[in-house]
Computed example of a mutant assay.
Amino acid sequence: MEKVRQNGFDWFKGCACIAVILIHYYFPNNIGIGIRTISRFAVPVFFMVSGYFMLSGEENVCDRARTIKKIKHIILILFTSAIFYFFFDIIRNLITHWGGEKAFMNIYVLQ
């Protein structure tokens, strides 16, 4: 059976990606509040599209093995990005503050 690409979902995901960027960007005054408020649709769209594709398949059933495989994949991505950004923040602070211990203390030690 040949898989058919569903372009509508790609369009929704593309708009949601742009909206996530807008959520994290600072816009001043009421314009920023409005943009962030409108952009809040992005996270639910990602959940809905992911849920749809978890259930889509030949049997249209969300079996246990497939779900566990997807959860492991998501956890791997989460930990990989967390480790990357941990070291990225340390290096960024060392470069920005060039204080060694001071740079590390600013983010990773509660005062």
Rank of each mutant, 00 (worst) to 15 (best):
H24K: 08
I91V: 12
S56R: 10
F27D: 06
A19V: 01
W11F: 15
R5Y: 14
I77N: 07
T96P: 00
F27T: 06
I95L: 12
K70Y: 08
I77M: 12
S81I: 08
L110D: 09
G99I: 02
H73M: 07
A65F: 07
G57V: 04
S56E: 13
N7S: 12
G51E: 05
R64H: 06
I35D: 02
N93S: 09
F53H: 11
A103K: 03
I77H: 12
W11K: 00
F12Q: 07
F53C: 06
Y26P: 04
F88Q: 08
D89G: 02
I33D: 13
C15N: 05
C62L: 15
G32A: 08
I71R: 02
M54N: 05
H73S: 15
G14Q: 01
G14C: 04
F84E: 02
V109A: 05
A82T: 09
F86W: 05
I23C: 11
M54S: 08
A103D: 03
E2P: 15
N30Q: 14
Y85L: 09
M105H: 12
N93W: 05
I68F: 09
R64T: 09
A19I: 04
N30W: 13
E2H: 13
I74L: 15
H73P: 00
T80R: 03
I38V: 15
F12C: 13
N29L: 12
P28G: 03
A82E: 10
R92N: 10
T67F: 14
A42M: 06
K13M: 10
F53Y: 15
F79L: 15
W11T: 14
E59H: 08
F88A: 07
I68G: 00
V109L: 14
N106C: 07
N106S: 14
V49S: 03
R36W: 09
V43P: 00
G100Q: 04
S81P: 00
E2G: 03
I83F: 12
M48F: 15
